[in-house]
């Protein structure tokens, strides 16, 4: 057993891949969340497009760069998901016969629901891309290039806004366990650092979650309007 193949075949190697891709995806989420908050800058004055729309145009300045980033993210997501699926299958196989009575002592709701949160998140991401990137989910609400308008028109519909807010709940639990778990897997073994990482990871998870929830709620409560 040697080389990259051997590393990936080993249980710890796969764990490190899931942890490292997870941390990079958290980095993306954080930047994405900050970008979204520009919706609070409003529709734009003196005939200028909204800040959020300008930001969308900025990202599209060089389509090659945008596609490189998209493909990079897609690669990270595929590695993260495919490797996790393999790990989960191995972990299930490691205990073919269940206990008649098993009581957990230390594990958390977040830890036990990682895989379900992950599946919910994946379904949400597919819908989200079809909705606000491709524009196929709600054609009547979508106008190519009008980022701010698309956001406000969509979230004025309470059902869509609720779906977006509700989807952030599994995000919170997934990140709350995921961030600290990934750093453990990547080798942080100092007990005091681990305690700090658990607190900081939970806080970052809450920050990202609330930041994402702010935009649909802002539209729903009329703080963000056309």
């Amino acid at each position: 057993m040697s080389g990259l193949g051997g590393f990936y075949r080993s249980s710890i190697g796969k764990k490190i891949v899931v942890g490292a891709t997870g941390i990079l995806l958290v980095g993306f989420l954080f930047v994405h969340m900050l970008g979204n908050l520009q919706a609070f800058e409003g529709p734009g004055e003196h005939g200028e497009p909204a800040k959020l729309t300008q930001y969308g145009e900025l990202l599209r300045t060089e389509m090659a760069v945008l596609w490189a980033m998209r493909l990079g993210l897609l690669g990270l997501l595929i590695l993260h998901v495919v490797t996790t699926v393999r790990l989960v299958a191995e972990n299930r196989a490691a205990r073919p016969e269940r206990y008649a009575m098993a009581r957990s002592m230390k594990t958390t709701f977040a830890a036990r629901t990682m895989i379900f949160g992950g599946v919910a998140l994946f379904a949400y991401v597919v819908y989200h891309i079809l909705h606000l990137t491709v524009g196929a989910a709600h054609r009547d609400l979508f106008r190519e290039g009008d980022v701010y308008g698309n956001v406000v028109r969509s979230f004025s519909n309470p059902v869509i806004a609720t779906v977006y807010v509700a989807a952030m709940i599994p995000v919170f639990f997934h990140l709350r366990h995921g961030i600290q778990s990934a750093l453990r897997t990547l080798g942080v073994d100092h007990p005091e650092h681990l305690a700090r990482i658990q607190t900081a990871g939970g806080a970052l998870a809450a920050l990202i979650t609330l930041g994402f929830m702010a935009v649909p709620l802002g539209v729903l409560f009329n703080l963000i309007r056309l």
Binding site: K14, K15, L87, T107, T108, A111, S181
Partner: peptide, 11 residues
């Protein structure tokens, strides 16, 4: 040996 992998539950 067929052991599973750690998912940091702490059990």
């Amino acid at each position: 040996e067929g052991f599973g992998g750690c998912t940091n539950h702490g059990e």
